[in-house]
Design a protein around this nucleic acid. Structure first.
Lengths: 136, 136
DNA sequence: TTACCTGCAAACTGTTTGCCGCTGT
DNA sequence: ACAGCGGCAAACAGTTTGCAGGTAA
């Protein structure tokens, strides 16, 4: 059962706009903002409004098709839930971003779960700090 | 040498407004927003503008007297740098916040430094997830 | 047919900026 | 005296919302 059927099974409709949002996210490398998505869609469908993109990201997130993360600015970044999960290192000085495998974050997640009963989502926010170059 | 002298030594002036910002932060328990600070100051000094609070937080941060963190919303939280540093757990469902000692985060910081040369500031962003109650 | 969804315009929140007169040093 | 600073009003970015008509199922 594809996403479209699954969405319908959940009372949602598969519209052109939603398909386009999912398409852009499938092609995207990483860290796509709502504005990126909107701009990309408007190149071929100028009538599609940014507010529709925002509404659809929210709706798609509610059912688990997409998720969002926060790097170190005020902008929300989106990805498809079926893309590989990873952590982020963001340099507060030069702004560089590096992806890291989740397994590096696992021990902390395990400890927080054991000691605090807290199910941490360590892919949700970037780890901020100084990259190798800026630290020297 | 107090903060005031240190500030002057760095070419900054100690104004009433700055003293009030530092006072509010000294009395604050945790996670104070610029709006909190502004509201608190305006109770006794109604003419002091929020923009002054924002400008002063930024100036005080540049010289290291205050620092900011991000919980899971769009609002910046401030604290005095001389207050004890700690990590944060924020529940994405019920919004509850828990402080955790930095030492829990140390092993990850150490690993990121060793394997990626990255100096992580793990107090800067909250760890988001599900608290014990919401996870069940 | 009828929820659900969309485009459009406007509102909203948190924060930043330009201007110009004021004040700490 | 004079650079830094503050108040005020306006701008700003990212996002959300109300409405009325449109469309998937």
């Amino acid at each position: 059962m594809g996403i479209a059927d699954d969405m319908r099974a959940n009372g949602m409709r598969m519209t052109v706009q939603r398909r386009l949002v999912l398409d852009v996210l499938r092609r995207a490398r990483h860290h796509t903002t709502a504005e990126d998505i909107s701009r990309s869609i408007r190149a071929s469908h100028p009538q599609i409004d940014p507010s529709t993109v925002y509404r659809n990201l929210e709706a798609l997130e509610r059912l688990g098709y997409v998720t969002h993360t926060h790097l170190d600015d005020r902008v929300t970044r989106w990805r498809r839930s079926d893309s590989p999960q990873h952590g982020h290192l963001v340099c507060r000085k030069c702004g560089s971003e590096e992806d890291i495998p989740m397994q590096i974050l696992e021990p902390l997640a395990k400890r927080l779960r054991g000691e605090h009963g807290f199910r941490a989502d360590l892919a949700h926010s970037a780890v901020v700090g100084l990259c190798r170059e800026c630290a020297s």
